[in-house]
């Protein structure tokens, strides 16, 4: 078979790679959501979006911390502040600029459905107790993120003509970034053998079913799934947006790396 796996990663490298993929998704998404703080469409949403952002950054910090222990790095900040964009492993979807509220909600929804199915499967699979404990803890909050974003998809889809158009456009625009959520690479194939990861390509069907059902209820159309899909972010091939996000996020810490900032 052409799918001959030539993995050279040690077990340690493998678990770090998996932890960083999960963490980077959450840090970058959380960062984008945090940009809404103080600028939300209503006070209740300022609270809710900040809450989701806080959860996601918290999940990332916990995953980084565990990676730091395994790898012998000083702390979680090493991964957030001292890597460049080609080292980040998040999917491109989460680094896209926040857009309008419909765009933010659509992204949060698509990502939360993915996270829901991913974590559900990971919890069944991962044997490493510490890792699994974290997943279980975060899963509870992911359910809330999913509920929050799903309710807004319904409100905006089945709200006014304007909100319907805005969120339909958001789904159409973001769809090309959903492909890589379900693409597998060598690292992931090997991680599956070690019970550290799951076959994400198998998550596509339940994900699509859930999204389809929500879109129907929201009177929205499912975008064409047979279209060009962006790929490569897990290998560090990002959009141009990530570099700007990191420049902002990292500047102070990198300007004075020897100072105590904790």
């Amino acid at each position: 078979m052409s799918k001959k796996i030539t993995n050279t990663k040690t077990d340690k490298e493998l678990i770090i790679e998996i932890l960083l993929r999960l963490a980077d998704d959450r840090l970058i998404h959380g960062h984008r959501l945090s940009e809404w703080t103080g600028h939300g469409p209503e006070l209740e949403e300022d609270l809710a979006l900040a809450n989701v952002a806080l959860d996601m950054i918290g999940h990332a910090a916990a995953l980084y911390r565990y990676a730091a222990v395994i790898e012998g790095n000083p702390d979680e900040d090493y991964y957030a502040y001292f890597r460049d964009d080609i080292d980040f492993k998040n999917v491109a979807m989460v680094e896209l600029p926040k857009g309008d509220f419909a765009y933010t909600i659509t992204r949060q929804f698509l990502f939360s459905v993915y996270s829901y199915f991913l974590y559900e499967k990971l919890i069944e699979t991962v044997e490493n107790e510490q890792f699994n404990g974290m997943l279980q803890k975060h899963f509870k909050e992911i359910k809330y993120h999913l509920r929050h974003s799903r309710e807004w998809v319904l409100r905006l889809g089945d709200g006014t003509k304007e909100s319907h158009e805005r969120i339909q456009n958001a789904f159409d625009e973001i769809w090309m970034y959903t492909g890589e959520l379900f693409s597998m690479d060598e690292t992931e194939h090997t991680a599956i053998e070690k019970n550290l990861f799951v076959d994400v390509s198998e998550l596509k069907a339940p994900w699509l079913e859930f999204v389809k059902e929500t879109l129907e209820e929201a009177t929205l159309s499912l975008p064409d799934d047979d279209q060009y899909m962006f790929t490569g972010s897990r290998q560090g091939r990002h959009t141009e947006h990530l570099g700007h996000l990191l420049a902002q996020m990292q500047f102070l810490r990198r300007s004075y790396p020897d100072a105590d900032w904790k």
Partner: peptide, 21 residues
Amino acid sequence: ITRAPSLKRKMVLLAKVQDEA
């Protein structure tokens, strides 16, 4: 919030601003 110099400080600030809301 987007420039806080550590993840801990980022979360502390985000939580604080959320409290204000």
